[in-house]
Design a binder for these strands. Structure first.
Lengths: 155, 155
DNA sequence: TTTTTGGTTCGCAACAAACAGAACCAAATA
DNA sequence: TATTTGGTTCTGTTTGTTGCGAACCAAAAA
């Protein structure tokens, strides 16, 4: 692939990732900055460089970076004798990814069990449905834990 | 637990589920209606009943119900000689839940692989990170498929 | 001490989302 | 045929979100 072609595709991918991230609850600006830091060949950007590259105001970039950092999605490093901060993508382990998923499932499971616990008739249509779902979720959560161990060993 | 106490807890749970659902991208009104249909002992509500119970305008209820139905989260039934529609929670199988999760993972995986494919230096920090994540995700996706089969057999 | 650098914070304007009210409509009933 | 029922659709208001510019600030450099 030609250089210019590759660059163009990278830019498109940033925009695509931006939209994906928006669906995950990110605001437009952080969503795209995250894309930038993941996709480009240059993997460490200063504040100023992000402002220029994305043509976003300083204030928005400032807010966005803080936001992403607090969430633990990016980090910054500094170099001796250089006051600038260099922002980069912070790769969580796959574990983090799976744990998030699991945490969500567990939260859902707890809610479902609360619903069941509050039903007058434990054999009502919804109660039965929810019990089935609950059992299934318990199964998958248990297995997910096993998989995490299996994966770690395999490494 | 006393009846009135139970009812109060159910109402609180509806509000809680409402907030949870909002985080998943639902608007406030559909989010809470869904809670209502899951939690209450009365498991089939007419349009009019929802309007009264939730104190929401007809227009909002109308939009919300359509919304929830299109997403396949609720359904309605009718009874002969009764023009009203009775809305109720539509329980997807646990499979649906897992499939959603898997679909998301696959989409993420594809994006990650695109990023890697567009890197100039395939050994850059981010490229290496992303490869690790990618491998991990492939492992979990594969295993998830196996688990689905195992679970079905077990039933 | 003054200026520059590398940002942060505040207030506001533009825009988008959410909801209510009212008008509307088709099917059933009187 | 006229009215009621069970909703739907349209429009305007309210509310919330986003992002900018400008003012600001602390640390470093001049």
């Amino acid at each position: 692939m030609e250089e210019s072609e590759r660059l163009k595709k990278q830019k498109e991918l940033i925009e695509y990732i931006g939209r994906q991230n928006e669906r995950e609850g990110f605001q437009p600006v952080p969503a795209r900055i995250l894309g930038l830091l993941m996709v480009m060949d240059k993997e460490e950007y200063t504040f100023e460089e992000i402002v220029e590259e994305m043509k976003i105001s300083k204030s928005s970039v400032s807010t966005a970076l803080k936001n992403l950092e607090i969430r633990g999605i990016i980090e910054y490093v500094t170099y001796p004798g250089d006051r600038k901060r260099y922002f980069r993508f912070f790769s969580g382990e796959i574990d983090g990814f799976i744990n998030d998923m699991e945490a969500k499932m567990i939260k859902n499971l707890e809610t479902i069990q609360q619903i069941i616990g509050l039903k007058k008739d434990p054999n009502s249509r919804n109660a039965m449905f929810l019990k089935t779902i609950s059992t299934g979720m318990e199964f998958f959560i248990r297995k997910l834990d096993e998989l995490k161990i299996e994966y770690k060993k395999g490494q």
